[in-house]
Design a protein around this nucleic acid. Structure first.
Length: 550
DNA sequence: CCGCCGTTGACCAC
DNA sequence: GTGGTCAACGGCGG
């Protein structure tokens, strides 16, 4: 890690009335619509804009299944670093700069507050459990030291806590009830502060001078030896976010007619959605600003789509998941999670690895998993296909395992939304129609009969005739030879047969649901173990039954 | 208790 | 492309 000593302007005159604020950046990596930054810069003579490189997210982990840290793949780490570089450059234009520090953020922050005679600590409120715990510690110290804490809700459209309170202490569990509770956002018609002309200078950093660095590079963080064979095409940062936003909303007709479920998951040259999610995740783009821009477009057109399918509806989905996640203890696991169905998922590491490493033998599934690894982004429906396949559709692997893979590799992975969607897709919560299974063969074919998406992300199949590209194991040997792709050698045979595997999954889900209903939702670990045993026994008897039938 | 609803299933007929 | 059927879930409001 580079430990550059950066010359910083000294305060011109020591003045006891001059006060300093500390702006702590975590998410919210932006200048526009940033109430915490706004607050820090008004009424303070100095502002210390701090970002702490947190080993919890950023420390290289050589044992992980892909290059990166324990929790984040390199694509997302790089996206974040790009966002920080952009933020630093914007701060510099305003007469400030980003102070990058390293270490456990709570400890680093408290040391900063002690060292810098800060009167006001400003940071965006964060509902994720990790930040709830961290922020509680920092706030405790600040109040004991008489430091004002300003921590506004600015990551989401609504305040999740307020919505939960409005609902009598429980989060709404359906989108419609969420909409009803939320109503129009109170700020919707008041203009947001989207520009800043200048910022107070950075104060004297004192003994921290030797610890403050520029935004590090991937290499400086200790990831230097690894090479990704393809990086994500999406660049991080607020500038890129605003550029992308402008492009997305410039086509008013497209915005007005946007219907999420009708998008084409196989479109990759020009994706069928905005791809603003990674920018929202890091707060490079304000969800409120995005929302207001959409309202402007809606005003200008005769008719437009509505939630849940509209573009504004997508922002509301985000708020929905943030709210449920905030109000649900153990939201990120099955056990002790009140809204999560208890299902006897298997623990098959072989199947998990095949899925993760894009060798299930189903080209549609594997191509999506390659896109995930290389781009860190796939269309929402593509995510549905692979999530369904891993869990309730085919492999019956625990949704938490898939969640971990997405959390690591997606550049837009977001704690609340990722966990919420995995529960959704695995029929563990929110959605329960387990008979509706995405076919790993026909779903993609609807959109892309020629298999261009597969050919791009799985070049080994690029010469497979379109008749076989979704089911290459059915291609005659001569065709395989001509396509220079022998199934079982150059590309794997299917790990399971979709027909029998999906039937088996439906049966297991049915049994698990029945047990849950019988026990009023209070399924213990022992109950689950018994169910697992029962399912195994039934499976063992099944061939006998078949023989009897014949 | 009943009936309706739910962002995005597959398959088939028209 | 649309619309029906298949088989049929839980949440929720009445």
């Amino acid at each position: 890690m580079r430990r550059a000593i950066i010359p910083l302007p000294k305060p011109p005159f020591p003045n006891p009335t001059m006060s300093a604020s500390l702006m702590w950046f975590r998410k919210g990596l932006r200048i526009h619509d940033n109430p915490a930054l706004q607050h820090a810069s008004t009424g303070s003579s100095f502002v210390y804009p701090v970002f702490v490189i947190d080993p919890h997210y950023m420390k290289p982990d050589p044992d992980a299944f892909s290059p990166g840290s324990k929790l984040a793949g390199l694509n997302r780490i790089r996206f974040m670093l790009e966002s920080l570089v952009d933020l630093d450059s914007s701060l510099k234009k305003l007469g400030s700069k980003l102070l990058v520090l390293n270490g456990e953020p709570g400890e680093v922050l408290i040391r900063c507050l002690k060292e810098w005679d800060v009167k006001s600590l400003c940071f965006e409120y964060d509902t994720d459990p990790y930040y709830q715990a961290l922020d509680a510690r920092v706030k405790d110290y600040a109040s004991s030291a008489g430091i004002e804490v300003f921590s506004p809700v600015s990551h989401t459209l609504f305040n999740p806590g307020a919505i939960i309170q409005k609902n009598g202490g429980k989060p709404p569990l359906t989108y419609q009830s969420f909409l009803k509770l939320a109503g129009e956002p109170s700020w919707a018609s008041s203009p947001l502060s989207t520009s800043m002309s200048s910022l107070p200078p950075v104060g004297d950093v004192g003994n921290f001078a030797c610890e403050i660095s520029e935004v590090p590079t991937i290499k400086e963080l200790g990831f230097g030896e690894v090479e990704l064979d393809e990086w994500t095409p999406f660049r991080g940062g607020e500038s890129e976010a605003l550029k992308r936003l402008r492009e997305s909303i410039s086509d008013k007709k497209w915005v007005a007619n946007f219907e999420k479920p009708k998008g084409d998951p196989s479109a990759f040259v020009k994706p069928a959605t905005t791809v603003l999610s990674p920018y929202l995740k890091f707060g490079c783009l304000s969800s409120r600003y995005f929302y207001q821009c959409l309202q402007e477009v809606y005003k200008d057109v005769q008719k437009h789509t509505s939630p849940p399918v509209s573009l504004a509806g997508q922002l509301l989905w985000r708020d929905f998941f943030y709210t449920v996640a905030f109000g649900t203890p153990n939201f990120d696991r099955m056990k002790e999670n009140k809204i999560c169905k208890q299902i006897p998922w298997n623990d098959d590491d072989e199947l998990l690895a095949a899925w993760r490493e894009a060798r299930t033998g189903y080209p549609w599934i594997d191509a999506i998993m390659v896109q995930l690894r290389k781009w860190g982004w796939m269309h929402h429906l593509a995510r549905h296909c692979v999530a369904c396949f891993l869990t309730r559709g085919d492999l019956f692997v625990h949704w938490e395992k898939g969640r971990d893979v997405f959390e690591r590799l997606l550049i837009d992975s977001d704690w609340a939304i990722n966990n919420g969607n995995w529960m959704w897709l695995s029929c563990s919560s929110f959605f329960y129609q387990y008979n509706r299974i995405y076919s790993p063969i026909s779903f993609g074919k609807k959109y892309d009969p020629n298999g261009n998406y597969i050919r791009h992300f799985l070049p080994v199949l690029k010469d497979m005739p379109k008749e076989y590209i979704y089911e290459p194991w059915t291609a005659p040997k001569s065709v395989q030879t001509k396509a220079k792709c022998i199934i079982g050698r150059d590309y794997p045979k299917p790990v399971v047969s979709h027909d029998s595997a999906s039937k088996e999954c439906k049966r297991k889900l049915g049994e698990a649901y029945a047990l849950s209903q019988k026990l009023n939702g209070r399924v213990t670990e022992e109950d689950l173990a018994n169910l697992r045993q029962k399912l195994e026994q039934d499976k063992a008897q099944e061939p006998k039954n078949k023989r009897q039938k014949r």
